[in-house]
Design a protein around this nucleic acid. Structure first.
Lengths: 144, 144
DNA sequence: CTGATTGCAAAAATTTTGCAAGCCT
DNA sequence: AGGCTTGCAAAATTTTTGCAATCAG
C-alpha cells in the first residue's frame, strides 16, 4: 500500500484503520471501475469484518481528500476510480464497450482554462461517446 | 418543443405521449442539471398526472436514443443533460461550484481518437477538477 | 382496434444514520 | 485514556416492477 496515500490520510488528521487500508488497497489496484458493492466485497477479502457503511463512509472521505472520484458511465450506478491524474474513456453507446486511453492532449486545455477562469486544475475526466468500430455498421434501430 | 426531437422518437418507433413531451421539454430548456426528482416536478408542472416511474422510463429511453445523458458531478445522484454536442465543466472540489464553458478545443482531440480507435464520436463530457479562484487560497484542511 | 404506455403502489436496491463497542494514537 | 471509527440494523432514498386502465396511431 502506497505510504504516500497513507500519509495524506494521516496528515489530514484521519486515523489509519484496517477498513480504510482495505478500501484504499482495493481502489489502488483497481483493474476496472468498481461500485460500492464490489468495493465492499473486495475489501472484505482483505479485512473480513469490513461493514458496508464503512465503505460508504471511507469512499466519501477519500473523495473529499481528492484521492478517489465517483463516475457514472453507462448505467449501473456510481463507480469509483483514482482521482489523481486524468481519466479518459471512449464509450460506445451501442454495445457499452469502454476503452480507456492514456494520451493526454488535455494538458494544453488545462492551462488555458486555468488562465481563463483562475482555476487551479488538479485532474480531469474526459468521456467521448459514440459508436465503436464494431458498431459503426449497425446503428441503433429503435423501439425495444 | 423541437419537432426534430419528436421525429427522432417517432422514427425510432415510440409513441408521442404527453409525459414524454413533458420530460423532453424539461430537459430541453434545462437551465441547470436536473435530477430525476426535479425532472418529475417540472414535468408535472406541464402534465400534472405524470408519474415518477414514467419519468424514469422516459429518461432511460431518451438515454438509449442518445438524446440525454446522465452525469454525476459532485455528489447528489445522477442528473440529466442534453447529450448532443459537448458538455464541459470546471468543478471546484472545495466549494462545489460548477462552471460550464463552451469553447470546444475538443474537436481536434475527437478527430484524433476517431482515427486511432475507429470510433465515430458523437458527443463528449469533459470535466476538470480543481480549486476555483475563490478557493485557491484556502486549501482543504482535513478531518471534518 | 391493439398494443405500447401510463400511473399507482408495492418491491428492490442503494445510501445514510444512530449508537454502543472497539481501536488508533 | 479519549475520541475517532466501526459494524450492525433500522431508516431514508432512489429506482424498478407488476398490472390493470388508458391512450396514440
Amino acid at each position: 500500500m502506497s505510504p504516500e496515500l497513507i500519509d495524506r490520510l494521516r496528515e489530514a488528521g484521519y486515523k489509519i484503520t484496517p477498513p480504510r487500508l482495505a478500501v484504499l488497497e482495493v481502489i489502488q489496484r483497481e483493474g476496472e471501475h468498481l461500485n460500492p458493492n464490489e468495493i465492499l466485497a473486495q475489501a472484505q477479502a482483505i479485512h473480513p469484518q469490513t461493514g458496508r457503511a464503512t465503505v460508504y463512509r471511507t469512499l466519501e472521505l477519500l473523495t473529499n481528500l481528492g484521492i478517489v472520484r465517483p463516475i457514472y458511465v453507462g448505467d449501473s450506478g456510481p463507480t469509483y476510480i483514482r482521482a489523481e491524474g486524468g481519466h479518459h474513456h471512449l464509450v460506445c453507446s451501442q454495445c457499452g464497450r469502454i476503452l480507456d486511453f492514456e494520451q493526454c492532449v488535455a494538458d494544453s486545455m488545462e492551462r488555458e482554462l486555468e488562465a481563463r477562469f483562475g482555476f487551479r486544475i488538479k485532474s480531469h475526466l474526459l468521456e467521448f461517446y459514440g459508436l465503436c468500430a464494431d458498431c459503426c455498421g449497425e446503428e441503433t434501430t429503435g423501439a425495444s
